[in-house]
Design a protein around this nucleic acid. Structure first.
Length: 249
RNA sequence: GGUCUCCCGCUG
């Protein structure tokens, strides 16, 4: 069953949701982990109804399977249902609390997100990063910077979130200083954020420099370049990017 | 072996 679950998860991660479901249906027996993996797969695919049906036909649940259903609702914008699940679940852990915080943040309910953050029984790096992202998404750059300074530890996600705060605030030079001089490590997400920042700023040349220098690219990299060309009004360049990108959806 | 936070697009 462990190998089946690994395989199901691999199908789901590559967007082969029907293959995942076919595998799930063909299993001679199922445990809670494989049920939960399938629920989560539906959630990531935006198939909330299928996720819920499967969740409620699961013979029993644990905190991880409850969390999977909770985040399926959160990710897809079903915030009332998410709150219902949170209140209904018999136990909650840090993941549940973080998911609830994210739900309020995505809803734009900053005050509620703050309330969750201050009232949750524990908080970890993810909680701090989620609060930082909440302020960033709300366009509250000053508050986001304040959280960044206050947080006890900063990981790569925190630094990347700070990059997007500056980018969204139009402070591209500050973002560049952060990525070039202050960040202890960088990832493809960091570089993508810079490409997007330069693109929004119509600095196509700088975006291209980042693109050419980065050691690793993913689909978001290509999309960000495509958008940078499109926003700059360079249809020829955009077309060239489109035809060069390895994966199109 | 399953669940939470950061980048682009789509859904809008």
């Amino acid at each position: 069953l462990v190998s089946w679950t690994v395989m199901l998860d691999a199908y789901a991660r590559t967007g082969q949701i029907e293959a995942a479901k076919a595998l799930f249906d063909s299993l001679p027996e199922r445990d809670l982990v494989v049920w939960t993996a399938m629920v989560d797969a539906y959630g990531h695919e935006g198939r909330v109804k299928d996720a819920a049906d499967l969740f409620w036909s699961t013979p029993y649940h644990d905190v991880v399977s409850w969390n999977s259903m909770l985040t399926a609702y959160v990710k897809n914008g079903f915030y009332d249902e998410a709150r219902d699940v949170f209140q209904t679940m018999p136990q909650r852990d840090l993941v549940s609390w973080n998911a609830l915080l994210v739900a309020y943040a995505q809803e734009g309910e900053l005050a509620e997100a703050e309330r969750v953050f201050s009232q949750m029984p524990d908080c970890n790096q993810v909680s701090w990063n989620a609060m930082l992202a909440a302020y960033a998404q709300a366009g509250r750059a000053e508050l986001a910077e304040w959280v960044f300074e206050e947080m006890p530890c900063k990981d790569l996600v925190s630094w990347n979130a700070l990059l997007s705060v500056y980018a969204a605030d139009g402070r591209v030079e500050q973002a560049r200083t952060v990525i070039e001089e202050r960040m202890p490590h960088r990832s493809v997400v960091s570089w993508n954020a810079m490409i997007a920042a330069y693109g929004q700023n119509k600095q196509l040349r700088e975006a291209k420099q980042v693109f050419g220098a980065m050691p690793e690219r993913n689909h978001a990299t290509w999309n960000a370049m495509l958008v940078a060309y499109a926003d700059a009004g360079d249809a020829v360049g955009a077309t060239r990017v489109f035809h060069t990108m390895p994966d199109k959806n």
